[in-house]
Simulated assay, not measured.
Amino acid sequence: MQKSDIARLLFLAALWGASFMFMRIASPAFGAINTAFLRVFFGFCGLATILLVMRGSFRFDGKMKQVLLLGVINSGIPFLMYCIAAQLLPAGYSAILNATTPMMGVMIGALFFAEALTLKKSAGVVTGLLGIILITTTGNASEAHILLPGIVCCLIATACYGVAGFLTRRWINQRGGLDARTLAMGSQLGATLFLLPFFIGSLTTGPQVQWGQSEAWLSVLAVGFLCTAAAYIFYFHLVASIGPLRSLTVTFLIPPFGVLWGWLFLDEALPGSFFIGAAVICLAVWLVITPSRAERANQPQVK
């Protein structure tokens, strides 16, 4: 792995880690639905602009419906869940729970997509569940009662990511594929269309929102253009450079950045027992995403 790849990996993790801080700022100010909609809308605008500037393809080759639906599953619902969680949890909690995505993928693959569940991956799932229990029971009973709904929202989001990964393979990759930038832009369009009715309903019947909050607007713009649009481009370059397996190591780096930004800019103080649960979840992710000897033997070498 080149130094430039390492720098790109760290920068990507810093961007995605910062998204939880930005949602933590914007969601209480604008509301979960409004924040989620604005994130995917600005993400779509940013990706569409990038495609225009880079003269990318806007062709979906007959997969438009599937791409839009993937946007709902992979962005619309998860971003809404994270925005709800941002009103209930410190940014560090959401960042750590986001790392359960590979574990969710293993569970969903085994239950619904006939994926082989190896002993190592099974151990990762069990370990991850233990980590979630440790985080959920951190602090006193009153705090746990407040945190639990936010934790459930985060787990719904990561379950959606797990489902979307398998559906992308079935609907897109096994049907001739699609340019990754076009797929990303189309998915954000699908998420925008999905959240638009909820956004309109929130504006017309929801609580009054003070839209003149500059800090919240800066956070929404940052999470849309930087943590969504720009991050996608960095991720695609990373996959092309070091391969999808090595790119998954970003999963380990997002939680430390999420906790760091929350501590630096939001004065979030997390109990020591939280970090024990976080370490257990990171161990679970490692067990899930690192291939066994047999899997490594069957994989092509990435240089």
Rank of each mutant, 00 (worst) to 15 (best):
P102C: 11
F112C: 04
F58R: 03
P102F: 10
T101K: 05
A91V: 10
Q66M: 12
G131M: 02
F58G: 08
R55K: 14
L117N: 08
S75C: 06
K120V: 14
V72P: 04
N98R: 09
G62I: 14
G109C: 10
L97D: 01
G150F: 03
A86Q: 01
L130F: 13
N74V: 07
T100H: 02
A141C: 04
L69H: 03
K121A: 06
L148A: 14
I96W: 00
L69W: 13
C83K: 10
G92E: 05
G128H: 08
N98Y: 11
L68V: 02
F112R: 01
A141I: 09
G131I: 08
K63C: 10
H145L: 15
L80T: 06
S75T: 09
G92Y: 01
L134M: 13
L130D: 05
D61H: 14
M104P: 03
I133R: 09
G92L: 06
S94N: 02
E115K: 12
L147H: 15
L130G: 07
I133M: 13
I108S: 08
M107T: 08
L68G: 08
S122M: 11
T49K: 00
T49V: 13
P78Q: 11
I133Y: 15
A85V: 11
I77H: 04
I84K: 01
V53F: 12
L70V: 04
F113T: 01
L111V: 13
K65Q: 15
V126N: 05
V106M: 09
D61W: 12
V106A: 15
S142K: 10
S75G: 03
G76D: 10
I50R: 01
L148V: 10
V106Y: 03
T49D: 01
G150Y: 05
G105M: 06
L119N: 03
F58A: 11
V152K: 00
I96K: 00
A114Q: 12
S94R: 00
Q87N: 11
L69I: 15
R59N: 12
T101Q: 14
N140C: 04
